[in-house]
Every structure is written in C-alpha cells, then in structure tokens.
C-alpha cells in the first residue's frame, strides 16, 4: 500500500476531515464508555442533553464557547502565517490582568467609554506579549514554539504574584483573587435574565472581521502568502518581516480578548483559574476548523458542547468526564489523518 498525491481534491474529499473527525471521536468514545460500564447510547444521549438539551445547557455551552472562539481565532491567524503561537494562554491572562487592573475602580468612567477602553488596552497587552517572541523569531531566528510556550508558565506565575500582592482583594478572606469589577466595567447580558453576555457577540464579530481581513484586505493576502511560501512572498516584494509582526499583534490581541471577555463578562474578578487551558484548547479548535475563521466558531461550539455535555453526563451516569478530553484528542488525531486523505489517496499494489 502506498500514498499517491491527489492534484485537485473534490469537494466531498475536502469536507471529509471534519466529518471523519467527529464520527471517529464518537466511535472511540463509545468503546471507552463501554469499558467504563456505560451504554454508549445512554452516554451520548446524556452528553447531547447536557450540552444543548435545555435553555440552561445551551447557554452554558455558548458561554464556554466564547473564550474558545477568541483563542481559536488567535491560533488560526498565527498558524495561517506559519507563526506558531502556542502562547494564547499567556496572552489571555494578559488581557485578563489589564481588565482587572482598569476595571476595579482605577477608571471611573461610564460603561460606553470604559468597556471599549479596557478591550482595546487588553488587546494591546496580549499583542505586546507576542511581539517579543515574534521579534526574536524575525531578528535572531529563535523558535517561537519554545518562547511562546515557556512564556505561558512565566506569565501565569506573574499573575499568581499579582494576585498574592498588588492585585489581591483585601476583602477576599485570603484567597488569591482580585477585587470585583465595578458595574461599568462588566459586559452586560444580551437579554436580561439569560446568563449569556455580550462577549459571545464580540467573539462572533471578531470571527467575521478576521474572515474579512483574510479574504478582502492586502494584509490578509500578505499573511496567507507569507504562510504558504515566505520565499515567494519575499521575492514578490512583500514586507515579510512586517507581515509576521502584524500577524503576531493580531493574534496576541485576539487571545487577550478571551481574558477580557471572561473577567468582564463571566467571572467579574480575576482568579488563577479563569482559564482551564483555553489557550491550548484554542489550538485544537483552530486545527479542527482548518484555520478558517468561521470554522473556528463551529469548532469552538463543538468543543464547548463536548465539555459541557460530558460534565452533565458524568454527574448523571457516573462515567468519568475525562471522556471529553479523549473525544477531543481522538477528533484531532482523526482530523490530521483525514487531512492526509484529502491530499493523498491510498493505492494498493
């Protein structure tokens, strides 16, 4: 058996990866559910019910998807330009820190002025955090996978220091958390009484904006060109280094919006556990979306539904919720395999 390249894959072949990924992950999860003593149909029934079966469940899924859309977009834009940003987690926290610093009373402005200010400065913080590794890459050829990955740990320790020191809530009974945000610094709910904030809408807008940038602007053209073939882009006169730096700023800014949205929209204060690895899960989301901005929305919804659904299923059926992690991991592996199948066909000798 050998692989032979396919020159021009059909549409059906191109749509194969996400379908195969989802079906494959369900099959793997079924097997594990059986081993854990559950009936796969009952397990998936419970997951689906827990993810979208009620108004509460649905809103929970949308809330969970919000930061994943931001980090997914951050990774997608960077990866498309072959800038391997593994540091969305740190950039998320950079946005969260700025939000906590500015939103807890430092600026006493009306919401219409305060929220955009915080959002923009959060983005700036995330952008600057990725600018360092990007400069090291373009100037000295330092591998950004290493620098961005390690910055995650450094920055998390820095946040931990802030929460034990300058940012610590004096009324927090000793817990490492920031004071609560003032009401003007909170992203309001979209509809009164429903637990879903404007961060979700902001995430959708960001996805559409990124799609427009990619397809309609010179920057998008340059980012795609640099990612596909930097040598040809340089030969054609594109400012390759500048494009990489702009991509870094955009990517870091998008990831920081996840932190802004979580602190301002959902939690109301900064703690060390506002992100259970959204920065890393963003990589999975972006890969499942094949780096397409609108695909990121769909992938983030899928990933969020699996997590939220698995939590509910675990409470109901006593099957461990780690099943969610396995489903995502297998979905990603299937995706990688299936992408291979869009480019090659298997030939029997």
């Amino acid at each position: 058996m050998r692989l032979e390249p396919i020159a021009d894959p059909s549409l059906a072949r191109k749509l194969l990866p996400p379908v195969l990924a989802i079906v494959g992950s369900f099959l793997v999860a079924s097997l594990l559910a059986l081993i854990a003593g559950g009936n796969p149909f009952a397990v998936f029934g419970a997951i689906i019910k827990g993810a979208v079966g009620s108004k509460f469940a649905l809103l929970e899924t949308l809330n969970r998807a919000t930061p994943l859309i931001f980090t997914g977009l951050a990774v997608a834009v960077a990866f498309r330009a072959k800038l391997w940003n593994i540091g969305a987690e740190a950039q998320l926290y950079a946005g969260a820190v700025v939000t906590a610093v500015l939103g807890t009373g430092m600026l006493q402005w009306p919401a219409a002025l305060l929220l955009p200010t915080i959002a923009v400065l959060s983005m700036l913080a995330g952008a600057l955090l990725l600018l360092g590794p990007a400069l090291l890459k373009t100037r000295l050829g330092v591998d950004e996978v290493v620098t961005t990955l390690l910055l995650n740990f450094i920055f998390l320790l820095f946040v931990s220091y802030l929460l034990e020191g300058p940012l610590k809530d004096p009324m927090g009974m000793g817990w490492p958390k920031s004071p609560r945000l003032i009401p003007e610094a909170r992203l309001p709910r979209i509809i009164d009484g429903l637990r879903l904030h404007w961060g979700f809408v902001l995430a959708l807008i960001a996805a559409i904006a990124l799609w427009v940038i990619n397809t309609r602007t010179t920057l998008g053209f340059e980012m795609r060109a640099v990612g596909q073939n930097a040598e040809a882009a340089r030969f054609a006169g594109m400012p390759v280094t500048g494009v990489i730096l702009k991509t870094a700023l955009l990517s870091g800014g998008l990831a920081a919006l996840a932190g802004f949205s979580e602190v301002s929209g959902l939690k109301g204060s900064l703690t060390l556990d506002i992100s259970p690895g959204y920065g890393y899960t963003g990589i999975v989301v972006a890969m499942l979306a094949l780096l397409h901005p609108l695909g990121v929305v769909a992938a983030a919804l899928f990933v969020a539904a699996v997590f939220v659904g698995a939590d509910a299923m675990s409470r109901a059926l006593d099957v461990p919720s780690y099943l969610a992690d396995i489903m995502l991991a297998s979905a990603l592996l299937m995706m990688v395999l299936a992408i291979l199948l869009t480019k090659f066909r298997v030939v029997r000798d």
Binding site: N229, E231, A232
Partner: peptide, 8 residues
C-alpha cells in the same frame, strides 16, 4: 517555489 505560490 520562488515565482509562484503553489496553492494560490
């Protein structure tokens, strides 16, 4: 590799 971008 220099004159064109294959997937464009």
């Amino acid at each position: 590799h220099t004159g064109t971008i294959a997937d464009f």
